[in-house]
Simulated assay, not measured.
Amino acid sequence: MISIMSAWIHLFDGAPTREFPKGTALFRAADPVRSMYLLRSGMIALERPMADGTSLTLHLASAGSAVAEASLFADRYHCDAVARVDSEVAVLPKPVFLRDLERQPRAALSLIETHAREVQAQRARVEVLRMRRVADRLDAWITLHGEPAQGDWSTVAHQIGVSPAALYRERAKRR
């Protein structure tokens, strides 16, 4: 039996895939929303360009997740989607995806559940980012997610809003 959490993923069975080398964009802010994306491998960042030339990372999509599903009912994207590493993405035209959701209520419910869990995760991330000290942010992140794999500490630094150097200094204090 398919988990309700992943029942929507089968909508991408047979969908064409595209490769996006590190640094390339799936789409840019103000582009029309024409497709729904499923990240097969890699990592895609949803970034909002800022006036000072920097980017605000709104979300990091990992393998098995939809990219910019919140834009499904928008006319235009409100951010850029940029490959952080070489990535492979399945692409479905927006009308096909919406038609399939209408025909398959279980898939629609699973997408809603996936999105609800993402909202919960974002709320938790906001609370972590509100903490002033790196130590407190790290403790909160570990409480929520557990110890990361050895090579994933730079991702943790990004998720808690500190530089990798600041995170490594904090980790060194704990040894």
Rank of each mutant, 00 (worst) to 15 (best):
I2Q: 06
I4E: 12
S6V: 09
I9T: 07
D13I: 02
G14Q: 10
P16N: 05
P16C: 02
R18E: 13
K22Y: 03
K22N: 09
K22T: 10
L26G: 01
F27M: 08
F27C: 12
F27R: 06
R28L: 13
A29W: 03
L38T: 11
R40K: 11
M43V: 13
I44G: 00
L46R: 02
E47D: 11
R48P: 02
P49W: 05
P49R: 10
T54H: 15
T57Q: 02
L60A: 08
A61D: 12
S62I: 05
G64P: 00
V67P: 01
A68Q: 13
A70P: 02
L72G: 07
L72R: 03
A74F: 11
C79Y: 09
C79E: 09
C79D: 05
C79K: 00
A83M: 05
R84P: 06
D86S: 12
S87R: 00
L92H: 05
P93M: 00
L98Q: 09
R99N: 11
D100E: 14
L101R: 07
Q104W: 00
P105A: 12
R106K: 06
A107F: 01
L109T: 07
T114H: 15
H115I: 14
V119T: 05
V119K: 03
V119I: 15
Q122W: 05
Q122D: 07
M131T: 14
M131H: 12
R133T: 13
A135T: 10
D136Q: 15
D139V: 09
W141D: 08
G146L: 08
G151L: 02
D152H: 04
T155P: 00
T155K: 06
T155L: 10
V156G: 07
H158G: 12
G161P: 11
V162A: 04
P164Q: 14
A165Y: 09
A166L: 10
A166W: 09
A166T: 14
R174S: 08
R175Q: 07
